[in-house]
């Protein structure tokens, strides 16, 4: 049931139905700067999704590694907004609690989101502190860089939240409520 259910959900995302137009030409993968570290390039990922193996597609790291350079999107001869499909796959995976093993990008994004929802703005220092819980080893290595940036005046430890943070939070909460209702 799940396979069909997930594919149907992907189709319902804006642009999700566009994968049906894919002609498997491979322009996307050929244009992708990150394809060489992906489990599958975008072309193979779409073949899997179209073929019904959407769960297998979601278990791949491909869509999390997409860096949003949009080369595939501007070059796709079928006009498919491929980057947006990658976003749709990310949302679908998070919503269904599917996380490719060892892939840290979703945790970085969740740390980003947490920081923005708390202060209204991003603080790199706060985000990296939060992310460190998910990546302790990597974060120790990054500590030296943080110190160097601090000494160069390129790191702010204090966060200046929005003046009207309460109103901002009301707007975000309303958006979440509307998203849940749809």
């Amino acid at each position: 049931m799940e396979v069909k259910g997930l594919l149907k959900e992907l189709m319902e995302f804006p642009g999700g139905e566009q994968i049906l137009k894919c002609i498997q030409c491979g322009t996307c993968t050929g244009s992708c700067p990150m394809a060489y570290v992906m489990d599958y390039g975008p072309r193979r990922l779409f073949a899997l999704a179209k073929g019904g193996s959407i769960r297998k597609a979601l278990m791949a790291n491909t869509y999390w590694i997409c860096a949003s350079c949009y080369f595939c999107t501007v070059r796709c001869p079928r006009g498919i907004r491929i980057t947006d499909i990658m976003y749709a796959l990310k949302r679908l995976a998070v919503k269904n609690g599917i996380f490719p093993s060892g892939e840290k990008t979703p945790h970085l994004y969740l740390a980003f989101k947490d920081t923005v929802e708390r202060y209204g703005r991003l603080s790199e220092a706060k985000m990296m502190q939060k992310f460190a819980l998910k990546d302790p080893f990597g974060s120790v290595k990054k500590g030296a860089l943080g110190l160097k940036l601090l000494m160069k005046g390129r790191m702010e430890l204090k966060v200046e939240p929005l003046r009207n943070l309460e109103a901002f939070k009301r707007v975000i909460d309303k958006a979440k409520e509307l998203e849940r209702a749809s």
Binding site: F13, P14, A67, S68, D84, Y87, K90, R91, V94, P106, L108, Y109, L110, F112, K113, V116, G120, R121, L122, L162, R163, N164, F168, V171, I172, A175, K176, L178, E179
Partner: peptide, 25 residues
């Protein structure tokens, strides 16, 4: 006035409506 984070690639990846509300605000 009192601008907020645009949401960047992180929000498009997590929550679509909020990803639109952040820049729209």
């Amino acid at each position: 006035d009192d601008w907020n984070c645009c949401g960047a690639t992180a929000y498009f990846s997590l929550d679509e409506l909020v990803s639109l509300v952040l820049p729209a605000r």
